[in-house]
Design a protein around this nucleic acid. Sequence first.
DNA 1: AAACAGTGCAACCGCTCTGAC
DNA 2: TGTCAGAGCGGTTGCACTGTT
Length: 349
Amino acid sequence: MGRSPCEKNGVIKGPWTPEEDMKLIQYIQVHGPCNWRTLPKNAGLQRHGKSCRLRWTNYLRPGIKRGRFSFEEEETIIQLHSVLGNKWSAMAARLPGRTDNEIKNYWNTHIRKRLLRNGIDPVTHAQRLDFKDLSSLLNLPQINLSNLLRLQTLLINPEALRLAAYLLENPELLLTKLQENQLFNAQLQNQTPVFQTDQLQNTFDLQTPLCNPSTDLPVTASVSNQSHLIQGNMGQISMNSDSLSGQTFQNNTTTFENVPFIENFLFGASDQRQKDLSENISFQSLNSGSNSSKNFSFDSVLSTPLSSPTPLISSSTYMNGNTEDERESNCSNLLKFAIPESLDFDDFI
DNA sequence: AAACAGTGCAACCGCTCTGAC
DNA sequence: TGTCAGAGCGGTTGCACTGTT
């Protein structure tokens, strides 16, 4: 396995022979792993010092564990990756006997592919809302001809999915925007809502159960033409056009002017009046009843910095099974959509 | 059985960062 | 401040292995 040995400028590249390994081991046993630049010459090896260092640290160093990763190791890698990102050496330090290169290779060749197949972003560890399991959709008991027509609308409106996915994957954006609009919100509280309530009834829900192991709350994203509702692991957030002055999301108001696709989705391409109205977006927590907005917690948002994404899905949700097939099977129902009967898609379109 | 394609993995390359001098 | 060595990382290479046709 690997490359064929080749010699270039007196330096051998490619797989190491047992004789080379023995020379390196014997030299390091005597002199220790130091001064890699001069080590090859002193040890009688036609190798680069860096190659010697990699060979030692990745394969010859005592305590190196070879062979397939166990299920426990896989879970550990996923959990560590959700916290550390691509800090392979830091992950290796927490996995006895495993090297950073081995973990990286295993991640790229096994875990990453499996996460992608299961609709999980391997970078953010969040469920991708644009990953639609149509078979699950069609197996829903509430799917009938009427709902299929609504499903068609949903599928031809990818902006709604993108909006939900974007906000779920970037909860810090909400916080940033809220902070930026503290002053703006104070102005809005003195304004009169301009929407009619019937404009806010046209809402559909994207319900994704199983996505929040910490709270067991279903993850729901609701989008309408004038009101936008996102529910993630933080609970449920409503971007509600008629809640400009009320008990909304800790009395904060936000806009999405720096997010082009959201801006287009919310405001339309050229309707300045609609944009003016939609700029008055605010947030409302809906996860605990009518007074929930006062009790809304930002903990989950604050614990999800860009540099160290917090998993929205536990590793056991990724792969709750002993075999890959079992794990994939258990992930296949991660994303389902339920469309309420009350939805009027004519307005939505 | 042979040809082919896909996959796994050791090893390498190039680059950046850090700390010592 | 600049240089150097070590370390870390992302990406890639190339061959062996395995499954499919």
